[in-house]
Design a binder for these strands. Structure first.
Length: 904
RNA sequence: GGUCGCUUAGCUCAGCGGUAGAGCAUCUCGUUGACAUCGAGGAGGCCACUGGUUCAAAUCCAGUAGCGACCACCA
């Protein structure tokens, strides 16, 4: 045997050891219910450090057989395009400890890895990369863009899993999943359809959190609040209005439909129920005075201007008081034409301009500084603009009740327990979950719509325009008859959704203009009678009959232009469909109600258009514990192949969900709700929540502070084992942990200590003869037991071994109770200060002279070393395995430490 | 505003009814045949504060103060 180097150098071993584990098949449990093989074959292969033979692979595979209760962890899937950070290193360590421990205990153990497609995050990353190349998402179009993202995923998606491997993660790569895999996509569709059929999913127009920067709706949970100082303005809409209102967002006041006061507020009692006509810098509105208990008498003037379309609370009040909702801000964060001459301005520009107007007209009573919370998007950090919008929602109340009960009844245990209260509170105050996202990267909503394939345009009747057609940036300023309706350009793809968000009965967004210009005719807005989307239209001739296109394109003949427009329209209509608005006093011939189809496969027949939106990333991650195991196929056709069970049947429900407390609501709660609803069972029995990794001074790690620890750098410098140990010791469930280089260095020293302990013991084993314990590999009884009755042992030896037995108990119990730190600390303390400092030191004298006493000493050292290595292995897998490979074959129950038996 | 935590040695944290603990830092001494990524030893704490329960409280209860997190949000 070659001499062991004095110091343990992690980089000499880690990569090859990982490969050895992976090649051995140790990561993969099997569900074949065959008898466990005695696995003795490992001993027949003499060369300990050599290549693993095919025979060994088989034997390792069989070792994890399906004859016990399986131990299962679903790995929280990191973002595919993400990069490993210290938080990942923490969860890998904790989950790997559990996995290795249970595997060594002989349980069929599955740790299922995978990655998440992470909708907005990934789309943004790829979008930015394209922009650098001078391309844009819109130019590419949906299909091409999604192709680009897939290319990106193929190129960079492997990075994160390579890094997971370098952390020693002993997960089953043969079962690796990605949230956009075929099987998982099917699960998503199945879940959606199931919920829809049960009435748990609905589509509706509600005020949502809209992120103008990401150009998508986001859920309430994705909104963060940042406190900031802003101005609170006290003012009147106009001179004749009797009440002064206070607001931080004057620009939204163009959308006001009421002023609300508290019912008990005597100051305003005489106005309640009355209606006032106002003129706010040219925009005329009818303002009703209402009373509602939500209004705080003492805030501001005690009177609130209600902007139902752009404030969550105002929306709710407007619903209960049956008030109109006027949208004045569009999806790009700009004022729309309902804001009169402010149309087109960005929100903040409009605010400045309006405040200036109010000042000049002496309408402002006062301005004061005010501390309030700004809603920002947790992805991009941009300001959230609440908007009414047509979206899909999940009805959460019924799901939450079940989910709450599962924890109350102890079906699911949350560690630490205090998070159960937080969980209950969330469940009790749950609101419906907006699941549609206006993105291209993700699971497309499995809903199709069909409207009439043919549409006839009817001529105008009466004064007001009756019928108009909307496509994407086309149809702008079409003249028809004597008057013109403005057909707005739809620049970003989101506008198409936007146009589709009118309901019959709404005031239309567009304005009426005369034939010379697009000036508004009076203040009237046409009322939308119906809205339809069509994909086929061929009545262009009539449509363009009165269109004086040549005005805008001098030099072109009308015929040329009509041809050109027609060609362009046809293409676009076929690709995207067009929105048709039937306005007041108009008729559409041949129309019929639109149809909706919800299913896992596209509908048959012509003219179906799939919903453009994709689902929130958390919708698919909510299915993770079972979608990764083959649900729903195995659920639907329970085919029992003789002697074989499916992954879903065998491994579900999983055992432990280990993740950060920061995603308790985002993810854990949703997995529980969706798991209970779809599989009828809680997806896991225990939730273990870890905290955030902070720096040595307990500050959050951030680039600006320069205190970010890169796990890859750290493990290069100190070894993966050192980092793992540093992340575990001193860490308790649910609490943040402070880690710095000095702590990691301390555990690097520990890894080296273990190495040198082994070096000492191995050297003495080699120098002695005939005293190698454990000669009987068939015997599975613990070696310490075999030596307890050995006559060569002194009383001290027996005491030491008893002490060691206690350690085993402590460590095993701690791991069973998920007390990682406790287990790690005890091992550290024992191995260093008991085993090395006392037992080894004491043995040195005894080793000087041949004889029974030396034999006893060596036996004791060996016994303690072997079982210590085993217990340390889940924590510091690389050093312990490296040492194991240097041990004489006869001492080992398995060729690889990872597959060896946990000492009991 | 609501909820949940935290406050123990210089630092980071365990302990959660029975004589104050660990790691790091610090001090003294030692050590070149397992390991200097080492060994032996020491110093360092009214366990935030105030009351209560108890034979006994860092530990249980109530309150106070500081810190932190989460949820909600007042326009």
């Amino acid at each position: 045997m070659e001499e062991l180097p004095k110091a343990y150098n992690p980089s000499d071993h880690e990569a090859s050891i990982y490969k050895m584990w992976e090649d051995s098949g140790a990561f993969t449990p099997t569900t074949v219910s065959s008898q466990p093989s005695p696995a003795r074959s490992a001993f027949s292969t003499a060369d300990a450090g050599g290549a693993v033979s095919r025979e060994d692979k088989i034997s390792s595979g069989k070792r994890q057989t399906a004859n016990g209760k399986p131990f299962v962890i679903s790995m929280p899937p990191p973002n595919v395009t993400g990069k490993l950070h210290i938080g990942h290193a923490l969860f890998i360590t904790l989950q790997d400890i559990l996995t290795r421990y249970h595997r060594m205990k002989g349980e069929p153990t599955l740790w299922l890895p995978g990655t998440d497609h992470a909708g907005i995050a990934t789309q943004t990353v790829v979008d930015k990369a394209l922009q650098k190349k001078g391309m844009s998402r819109r130019e590419l179009g949906r299909e091409k863009f999604v192709e680009e993202v897939w290319k990106w995923k193929e190129e960079y998606g492997g990075e994160i899993t390579r890094q997971l491997r370098s952390m020693g993660a002993s997960c089953d790569w043969s079962r690796e999943r990605f949230t956009l895999d075929e099987g998982l996509t099917l699960a998503v569709k199945e879940a959606f359809v199931d919920f829809y059929r049960k009435g748990l999913i609905y589509r509706g127009e509600y005020i949502v959190n809209w992120c103008p920067k990401c150009a998508t709706a986001i859920s309430d949970d994705e909104v963060e609040h940042k406190s900031q100082t802003s101005k609170l303005y006290y003012f009147k809409y106009d001179k004749n209005f009797p009440i002064i209102i206070a607001t931080t967002r004057p620009e939204t006041k163009f959308g006001d439909t009421a002023v609300a006061v508290n019912p008990s507020d005597k100051r305003y009692a005489k106005f309640v129920g009355k209606q006032f006509e106002i003129n706010l810098d040219g925009v005329k509105r009818k303002i009703k005075i209402i009373s509602d208990r939500i209004v705080d008498k003492d805030f501001g003037t005690g009177a609130v201007g209600l902007t139902p379309a752009h404030s969550m609370t105002d929306w709710k009040m407007a619903e209960s008081h049956d008030l109109g909702k006027i949208k004045i801000i569009n999806e790009r964060g700009r004022m729309n034409e309902n804001a009169g001459k402010y149309a087109g301005l960005k929100v903040l520009e409009a605010r400045e301009k309006l405040v200036e107007y109010l000042r000049q007209n002496n309408l402002i009573e006062k301005e004061e500084d005010f501390e309030n919370n700004l809603s920002i998007c947790y992805r991009c950090g941009g300001a959230i603009e609440p908007l009414p919008s047509l979206q899909w929602f999940v009805k959460m109340k019924p799901l939450a009740e079940k989910a709450k009960k599962a924890v109350e009844d102890g079906e699911i245990k949350i560690v630490p327990k205090r998070f159960e209260k937080v969980y209950f509170h969330w469940m009790d105050n749950i609101h419906d979950w907006c699941i549609s996202r206006q993105l291209w990267w993700g699971h497309r909503i499995p809903v199709w719509y069909r409207q009439d394939a043919k549409l006839e345009v009817k001529r105008v009747k009466g004064k007001v325009w009756d019928l108009k057609i909307y496509g994407r940036d086309i149809f702008n300023g079409i003249k028809n008859g004597t008057k013109t309706i403005e057909l707005r350009a739809g620049r970003p793809e989101t506008d198409e959704k936007y146009w589709g968000k009118f309901k019959a009965g709404d005031q239309s967004e567009f304005r009426l203009a005369d034939e010379n210009n697009d000036q508004i005719i009076k203040d009237e807005k046409p009322i939308v009678k119906s809205i339809k989307k069509v994909t086929h239209f061929d009545n262009f001739e009539e449509l363009f009959a009165n269109y004086k296109a040549e005005d805008d394109y001098p030099g072109k003949s009308k015929k040329e232009l009509v041809e050109w427009w027609t060609k362009r329209f046809k293409e676009r209509i076929e690709k995207h469909g067009i929105w048709v608005f039937e306005l007041e006093n108009s008729e559409i011939e041949n129309s019929s109600d639109s149809e909706i189809y919800v299913g896992t496969t596209p509908p048959r027949g012509e003219g179906w258009i799939q919903d453009e939106d994709v689902l929130d990333t958390w919708f698919s991650s909510g299915l993770w514990p079972f979608s990764t195991l083959g649900w729903p196929e195995n659920q639907l056709k329970v085919k029992r192949v003789k002697g074989k069970v499916s992954d879903f049947e065998y491994f579900y429900p999983t055992t432990i969900m280990e993740t950060g407390y920061d995603i308790l609501f985002f993810w854990v709660a949703r997995m529980i709700m969706m798991g209970l609803e779809l599989t009828g069972r809680a997806p896991f029995k225990t939730v273990y929540l870890h905290g955030l990794v902070r720096d040595e001074q307990n500050r959050k790690m951030s680039k600006s502070l320069g205190n970010v620890l890169d796990p890859i750098d750290i493990s290069d410098k100190f070894g993966t084992d050192a980092m793992r140990m540093a992340l575990v010791v001193g860490t308790t469930a649910g609490n943040d942990i402070a880690v710095g280089e000095s702590k990691i260095q301390g555990y690097r020293n520990f890894a080296n200590k273990v190495w040198n302990i082994a070096r000492f013991v191995i050297t003495n084993l080699e120098n002695s003869k005939g005293v190698i314990p454990g000669k009987d590999p068939e015997s599975r009884s613990p070696m310490s037991e075999r030596f307890a009755s050995d006559s060569r042992m002194t009383n001290q030896d027996k005491k030491d071994l008893e002490e060691f037995e206690k350690l085993k108990e402590t460590v095993t119990k701690a791991l069973d109770n998920l007390e990682f730190s406790r287990a790690g600390e005890h091992l550290y303390g024992y191995v260093w200060h008991e085993f090395a400092d006392k037992i080894i030191e004491e043995s040195k004298k005894r080793l000087e002279k041949e004889g029974p006493d030396k034999e006893a000493a060596i036996a004791k050292l060996t016994v303690i070393l072997i079982d210590s290595l085993k217990m340390l292995h889940p924590f510091i897998p690389f050093v312990t395995e490296a040492i194991w490979q240097s041990l004489p074959t006869g001492l080992k129950d398995e060729k690889l430490l990872i597959s060896s038996k946990w000492p009991e």
